[in-house]
């Protein structure tokens, strides 16, 4: 039960951290100053959500039995760490196979359209996720969901408007937006495909029913894509999976190498 709750928290937290990190790569490189600030704000929102969830995950981990603890992660540096686990330990000392984010969020930024498409699929998911999680029987998760929902609503408005603007824009912007939607589509399914942790938490009243949200997610996404005059990819398309259980694309390793380098090279460093 506790281990499944921890897995569940890590799914949520790792999504937020890895997407936030990816988006933060735009800082200083945005297409215009105003959008550079906008996307950096969004990165910080995701990072803030990740922190709240990691703090709770750390608390949950520290309460596990010694046996559960040794079995849970397979990251050598994490396991050699003797202090109580904190949000930082979880973010900086786990290796890729111990991350549970969906494959979508670790995909590279590509051009602006690719970045928007990734956020667009994720933001529509996170609005549904946090709306439902507000009623979680777990008070901490419910509180994080309530705070995060406001941010997610703004993110989904922002990314949806960009999809419409580029899709219903010039010939070139439309072609690029369509390509990004088509290419990223195969990564969207995993968000709403329940893992073992999702199912266990649903039964416990802590998690949410992802299957029940699929239809709404599709309708909402379809609505924006129609407004954007873009083709809607098939619901039946084959989807990538594996991130939620620790099987990642090669991209995650590069993200972690950059993100974790400082704490690995200079443990406990502060600045």
């Amino acid at each position: 039960m506790s281990t499944n709750k921890l897995k569940y928290l890590l799914q949520l937290a790792d999504n937020a951290l890895i997407l936030g990190h990816r988006i933060s790569e735009w800082t200083g490189h945005g297409p215009v100053l105003e959008q550079d600030i906008a996307i950096t704000n969004t990165a910080l929102d995701h990072l803030g959500q990740a922190r709240s969830l990691y703090q709770y995950a750390a608390e949950t981990y520290n309460q596990l039995s010694e046996n559960d603890k040794t079995d849970f992660f397979a990251s050598p540096v994490f396991l050699n760490h003797t202090q109580p686990v904190t949000e930082d330990t979880l973010a900086y000392l786990r290796d890729g196979w111990d991350f549970r984010n969906a494959l979508l969020v670790e995909q590279p930024n590509g051009d602006w359209a690719y970045t928007i498409a990734r956020s667009f699929f994720y933001d529509h998911y996170s609005v549904l996720l946090y709306t439902a999680l507000k009623d979680s029987s777990d008070a901490t998760i419910a509180a994080v969901a309530e705070k995060s929902l406001k941010e997610a609503l703004y993110h989904h408005r922002w990314s949806s408007e960009w999809v419409i603007r580029l899709g219903d824009g010039t010939e070139e912007s439309k072609a690029r937006m369509q390509e990004a939607i088509d290419e990223r589509w195969a990564f969207s399914g995993e968000l709403l495909t329940p893992s073992e942790a999702d199912n266990t938490m649903l039964k416990a009243g802590i998690g949410i029913d992802l299957d029940a949200l699929k239809a709404t997610w599709f309708t909402n996404v379809e609505d924006i894509l129609s407004q954007a005059t873009l083709n809607i990819p098939s619901k039946e398309a084959w989807m990538h999976e594996g991130g939620k259980t620790g099987t990642h694309s090669e991209h995650l390793g590069y993200i972690l190498a950059e993100m974790q380098y400082m704490q690995r090279a200079y443990p406990g460093m502060e600045w």
Partner: peptide
Amino acid sequence: SLHAVDAEMAIENARDVYTR
């Protein structure tokens, strides 16, 4: 002042630039 392509984006950019 700021740059934006339309009124919606102007308000959102203003939110991000001036009310953070």
